[in-house]
Amino acid sequence: MAMPATEAAHRIASQALTWLHTQREHGALPPDTTAELAEPDSVYKPLGETALAASLVLREGVAGSAELRLARELLDFCWKQLGGGAMLHERLLRYPMMTDPLETYAHFARCDYRHEALDRLLAHTTSLRSARAAEVLPNRRLAVANAARIGGFDQGGLATDWAALSRATWLGACPEPWLIDWMTAYCMTHTVFHLTDWGRLPSGLPGDVAQYLTRWLPAWIDIWAEIGEWDLVAELLIVSNCLAEPRRDPVAWERLAGIQHEDGLMPRDGRPVGDDPAERFAAHHHTTVVAAVAGTLAVSRALGARS
C-alpha cells in the first residue's frame, strides 16, 4: 500500500539525519588542517552541508525530541570542528574575497552560534564594492546574498536587490522548460533555495517564477526519477516545498523512500554503492544531507508551518 507522501518524507528525513549523526566523524577535519584547506570540497564543504541540514531541522522544529537532539549534537560537532568559528575567521583573513566562510557561517548563525571577530570582519568585507562586484554565477551571488541575510550583514545601505539578482538567473527568465541540462537544473534549484532561504520565505519567489515552477517541476521530477538521479530529484522536491503552495509529489517520495538504505544513506544515483564507510560518506554524504533537508521541509509544509 502506498505510503502517504508526508509519512515517507518524515521517514526519509529521520533516517538521513541519523546517518549523518552516526557517520559524523568521517566529516572531521584532519588533525593538521590549516585555514588554507588544500581540499576544501572533500572536507570543509561536507561540514558546512551537515551544518545546513542540522540547522534547518532545528529551525523548522517539527522533528521529535530525539531528532532535535541529534541535530543539536551535529551542529555542535561541526562548530567544534571549525574551532567555534575561529577557522572560518582565519580563512577569511587569509582570503578576504572568498565567500565560503560567510556561506558556512550562515548555517551556524541561523541557530545563534556567533564568533565575534568573524562578525566584525564579515561586516567589513560584505560592505566592500570589490567583494560585491566579484564575478560569480548568478545563483552563487544569491547564495552569498542569502548568507548575508541570515547573518545580518545586509542592513541599511547593504540591502540586497533580490529582484535584480533573481532576474539575472536562468530561472528568473522563465525559459523554455524543455531546454534544461543537468548543471542548469542545479543552478535552478539553488536559485530557489537562496531566494526563499531554504523554504523559510516562499514569497521570495517572484509570482511568475512560482507559477513557472508549479508548471514544470512535475516534468523535471519525472525524467530524472526515471533515470535514478536521486540527488537532483531530492533537490527538486525541496524546490516543491519552497513554493507558496507546496506540491505533494507522492510518487517521487515513495521512490526515494524505496531506495534509501537501511542505515539512512541516500544514494546519489542508480550506480552501486560501496561497502567502505569512508567511501560511502565521500560519495553519498551530499545526497543524504539533501534528503534530510527535503524530508524536513516537506513535513513542515504539510503541517502548515507557514502560509
Binding site: 508548471r215 516534468a219 519525472d222
Partner: peptide, 14 residues
C-alpha cells in the same frame, strides 16, 4: 493543455 505541454517537455528531455 498543461498535461500536453508537460508531456512534450518530458519527451524532448528524454
Amino acid at each position: 493543455p498543461l498535461a500536453l505541454a508537460r508531456g512534450a517537455t518530458r519527451a524532448v528531455l528524454r
